[in-house]
Deep mutational scan, measured.
Amino acid sequence: DFYKILGVPRSASIKDIKKAYRKLALQLHPDRNPDDPQAQEKFQDLGAAYEVLSDSEKRKQYD
């Protein structure tokens, strides 16, 4: 669930989604977690979630 990945409720605004994405991107970035083999995958999932939820048309289709 993309909302769960970003840690935001379904009613979150685009601004809230962007804020959550930036915070998590810093935490999950593979360069900051060189010892975590799943860091790259988590970071890619985060990017996919943000791409869908930050675009109003894609978000409507997802919901």
Rank of each mutant, 00 (worst) to 15 (best):
R22N: 07
D55S: 10
H29D: 13
K15D: 10
K23G: 10
K60L: 12
D36R: 04
P37A: 13
K15N: 14
I14M: 15
K58P: 00
A25M: 06
K58L: 08
D31R: 09
D35A: 12
E57A: 11
E57W: 04
F43W: 12
L46H: 01
P34W: 08
Y3H: 05
P37R: 10
A39R: 08
Y3L: 00
G7Q: 11
L46P: 00
R10N: 13
Q61S: 07
A12H: 00
D31N: 09
K58G: 04
Y50W: 08
L26S: 10
A20I: 03
K18R: 15
S56P: 15
K23C: 13
S13W: 00
Q38Y: 11
E51W: 05
K4G: 15
G7V: 00
Y21E: 03
I5C: 08
K15F: 10
K4I: 03
P37C: 08
G7F: 00
L24R: 12
R32G: 09
P9N: 07
I14S: 14
R32L: 13
L28P: 04
S56Q: 11
K19L: 11
K18N: 08
Q44P: 01
N33E: 03
P30S: 05
S54T: 04
S13T: 14
K18P: 00
E41T: 12
G47W: 08
K60W: 08
K4Q: 08
E57S: 10
Q44E: 11
K42Q: 10
S11D: 15
L46M: 08
D45T: 14
R22M: 15
D45P: 03
D35T: 15
A25K: 15
Y50Q: 01
K19W: 07
S13Y: 01
L53Q: 01
G47R: 10
L28K: 09
K23E: 12
L24P: 01
A25S: 14
L6F: 05
A20R: 08
H29G: 06
L24V: 07
P30G: 01
R22C: 11
Y3M: 00
S56N: 14
I5G: 03
P34A: 14
P9Q: 12
I14T: 14
I5W: 04
Y3A: 00
A25T: 12
K42A: 12
Q61R: 13
A20G: 04
L46G: 01
R32C: 14
